[in-house]
Design a protein around this nucleic acid. Sequence first.
DNA 1: TGAGTGATTGACT
DNA 2: GTCAATCACTCAT
Length: 189
Amino acid sequence: MPEFLPEILSDANTAAKHLLGCKLIHKTKEGIAAGIIVETEAYKADDPASHTYRGQTERNKVMFGPAGHAYVYFTYGMHYCFNIVTGPKNSGQAVLIRALEPVEGIDLMKKRRGIDDIYQLTNGPAKLVQAMGITRADYGANLFNGGRLRLEPGVKPAEIVQTIRVGIKNGIQQPWRFYIASNKNVSKP
DNA sequence: TGAGTGATTGACT
DNA sequence: GTCAATCACTCAT
């Protein structure tokens, strides 16, 4: 693993903050798609809103594995969301990627999403998954071993906003949502 | 074994 | 603003 990782991924909150500005890259036979992470949310095992709150299941077992792997899950019967596992092994922590800023393979993203507006391409957790072409086949993938799904360090954002999370009912008081200020690709400004 | 719910989005009123 | 789509998981029979 690259040197910058252990520190960044040591804890979900730290990771959520430091992953902003990093670049997510997915290589497929259709081409390369990449985007800058502009919005994240941290989830921990002692957090009522987390999938790991009630223990390990077949679905979330990757979150109990080592940091740096992809946790892709299916929800609402029709959507996938993408997380990066963080923290020590068995700690059940992860960071949900909520929004990206497209930088590469934008035409491919438009084709996958079936729309033309680049601000609608990846401004939501299920949207970015579709635009990037991420599927359940990427479940458990190591993001740092040079595979087709990778994470690379990027430019540190000028201004990070920390606020409460959205789209959940439990643990809403936790200020564990982070996004880059004034970025047009965040799901909810 | 079955009803209820969700880290969402898009279509429709 | 409201609602359907419909999988995996939890909790209650």
